[in-house]
Write a protein that binds this DNA or RNA. Structure first.
Length: 605
DNA sequence: TAAGTCTAA
DNA sequence: CGATTTAGACTTA
């Protein structure tokens, strides 16, 4: 067995931000008296006062009430406030980057790659007066920045190997680039502190920060001092093989439970645990790894006989798993993570809305919930994908056109008394082209929602659940994906990554940029994709475009209903004034939607 | 492209 | 643990 120690690169400086109990902070910013923030039946998060009194994250609400009777529960129905706050803080940080590498993870975490800023400032250091250094925040404006002491780390440092008196490099520990890496981490720590305090003073949010050379390590090391702290993982990151010392990376990461490593989730940690605990390499039973050990640390895994990328590939690999997962996991275990901090993106790659239910088993209910979900979705699209038009701000334009809409459900297992069927807890889904009428800004949301539900979502639902009853859903999700970004007007706006787009998409984009920006012709896309038959390609068609799309989606219905699917599909429906009932299928809907609905039926079969 | 899996907050 | 909701990266066919 060769020394399977993979090479570690540490040419980057990455900062990881984690806002302290973010959800609670959002409310505290509005009303300091508030105590905790639950979502549905569970407390998603709580502030530190609540934690001091014995509450914790993901706790059941009634449980929390028993422990702290006067707890203030805030319903988190409205995620928009969190989304907005998250975006605001993210924008604040983004303004500091030079390379645009700022990546959000959930609402309350941000990675920043500040390598270029750090390198630039390293070159400015005056070796004769390191204590009085100046950190320049803008490349071409020396007046913007702050004074700092570049002989000291800002905030906490983590080192297993005790650092010597001199805070500057200890040359007794032979490492590659020890000195330079230390200097750059110091720079990074001061920049991090500047940003962290800026976030606190100017936005009112405290955060916990980690500084290291990759996403994995900066995220993990930040946890050492929270809340309101920052920690830098100190060198040496690499030590020569013949030394008895460990690198600080190894020393740091080794103590973690294997499942705590970002990227190694529930499934993978289970597999690894099973292997390390219960099947010690055939022989050598039990002596070292035997006993009844509960937790498996990174060190346990790393030192397991024969452990390496190949073994991990065997343990973790298999059909449906990521290729090269063994090598990747082996890297993580060794503190290696070469994944890039993503460029700031103007548009999300996907938007989805979902809700869960204790009981959802009739069509009228489904129809109602689909309307609710679709309404949220359309509104979200109009918030996240619309931008004020550059020239006159009275008009808005779509910055991206999602091409695909997907409906997912999670059927509740039947739980049969007589027999055997206890079954999957997983989601099933159907997807198809997103009709163009959703981009129409003249129609009201209600009109769009109604058309979308009747013409697209219900047909998908039928494919998912061919029988009108007999199912019971615990979850419904609607999402849009496959964003086709509109090219930015001036080269300025951050859409710099356009080179990464597929060539074909670029050509298509050019074509329809000439036309009405609010209604991209799917027809052209499909013609280029050369798969669909009999689709009108008349680009001058205004409202007709939606009809074309309808025809497109209608393509799939017969193939479904023809085979093994039942045909009886009438639901008994609750009566409601202001609503009409369809003679064909029994669905009810607002009067204005009936025309479209009837057209839908006329296209059926 | 469509459907699904795993991960993470 | 699991409970929930949203999102991204990835596989298979």
């Amino acid at each position: 067995m060769t020394s399977a120690k993979p090479s570690r690169r540490h040419d980057r400086i990455i900062i990881h931000f984690d806002y302290d109990c973010f959800y609670a902070s959002v409310f505290e910013a509005e009303n300091p008296a508030l105590k905790s923030v639950p979502l549905k039946q569970i407390i998603v998060t709580c502030n530190y006062e609540a934690r001091r009194r014995g509450l914790h994250k993901l706790q059941l609400i009634h449980e929390a009430r028993q422990i702290v009777p006067d707890v203030v529960i805030v319903l988190g129905e409205d995620l928009n406030r969190f989304r907005d706050a998250s975006k605001e803080l993210y924008k604040f940080l983004e303004a500091f980057t030079w390379n645009g590498k700022v990546e959000r993870l959930g609402f309350d975490e941000v990675f920043m790659d500040v390598t270029d800023i750090v390198d630039f400032n390293q070159s400015l250091l005056n070796p004769n007066d390191l204590k009085n250094s100046y950190f320049q925040l803008q490349k071409n404006d020396p007046t913007v920045g702050f004074a700092f002491d570049s002989t000291k780390i800002a905030g906490h440092g983590f080192a297993n190997i005790p650092q010597t008196q001199s805070p500057m490099p200890d040359t007794n520990i032979p490492t590659d680039d020890h000195e330079s890496l230390m200097a750059r981490l110091i720079l990074g720590s001061h920049l991090a502190q500047h940003l962290r305090l800026g976030l606190e003073e100017q936005k009112g949010y405290t955060s916990t920060v980690g500084i290291s050379t990759n996403k994995l390590l900066s995220k993990l090391v930040g946890n050492l001092n929270k809340p309101k702290g920052q920690t830098t993982l100190l060198p040496p990151y690499v030590v020569p093989d013949d030394r008895e010392v460990e690198s600080n990376v190894t020393a740091f990461i080794d103590g973690h439970d294997i499942g705590k490593i970002p990227g190694i989730g529930f499934k993978m940690s289970q597999k690894i645990r099973n292997h390390v605990l219960s099947r010690p390499a055939e022989f050598e039973l039990g002596l070292i790894y035997g006993g009844t050990k509960e937790s498996v640390t990174v060190r346990d895994v790393r030192l397991f006989p024969g452990m390496g990328p190949e073994l991990l590939e065997k343990v973790l690999g298999g059909p449906g798993t990521e290729r090269g997962i063994g090598g990747k996991a082996w890297g993580l275990i060794n503190g290696i993570d070469d994944t890039e901090v993503q460029q700031a993106k103007k548009v999300p790659t996907q938007i989805s809305i979902e809700d869960s239910y204790t009981r959802l088993d009739t069509m009228p209910q489904v129809l109602k919930e689909l309307r609710i979900l679709a309404t949220s979705l359309i509104k979200r699209m109009q918030v996240d994908l619309l931008e004020d038009d550059g020239d006159d701000s009275t008009t808005r334009r779509w910055i991206a056109h999602p091409k695909t809409v997907k409906l997912s459900t999670r059927p509740r297992p039947p739980l049969n008394s007589d027999g055997t069927r206890a079954r999957s807890f997983n989601r099933i889904s159907r997807s198809g082209p997103l009709p163009n009428f959703v981009f129409n800004l003249k129609d009201g949301v209600d009109v769009i929602v109604e058309k979308l539900v009747l013409e697209t979502l219900i047909p998908m639902f039928r494919k998912l659940h061919p029988y009108p009853s007999g199912w019971n859903l615990s979850l419904v999700n609607i999402g849009i994906t496959n964003m086709i970004e509109t090219a930015s007007d001036d080269g300025n706006g951050g859409g710099r990554d356009i080179g990464r787009m597929f060539k074909r998409q670029e050509e298509v984009l050019k074509e329809w940029k000439v036309e009405d920006r609010d209604v991209p012709p799917d027809t052209i896309l499909e013609a280029v994709a050369e798969s669909h038959d009999a689709i009108s390609t008349d680009p001058s068609a205004g409202n007709e475009v939606s009809d074309c799309t309808m025809t497109g989606s209608e393509d799939v219905i017969p193939t479904q209903t023809s085979a093994d699917e039942p045909v009886e599909w009438d639901d008994e429906e609750v009566e409601d004034e202001n609503r009409e009932i369809c003679h064909e299928c029994g669905a009810t809907m607002p009067a204005f939607a009936m025309a479209a609905h009837e057209r839908f039926h006329s296209l059926e079969t």
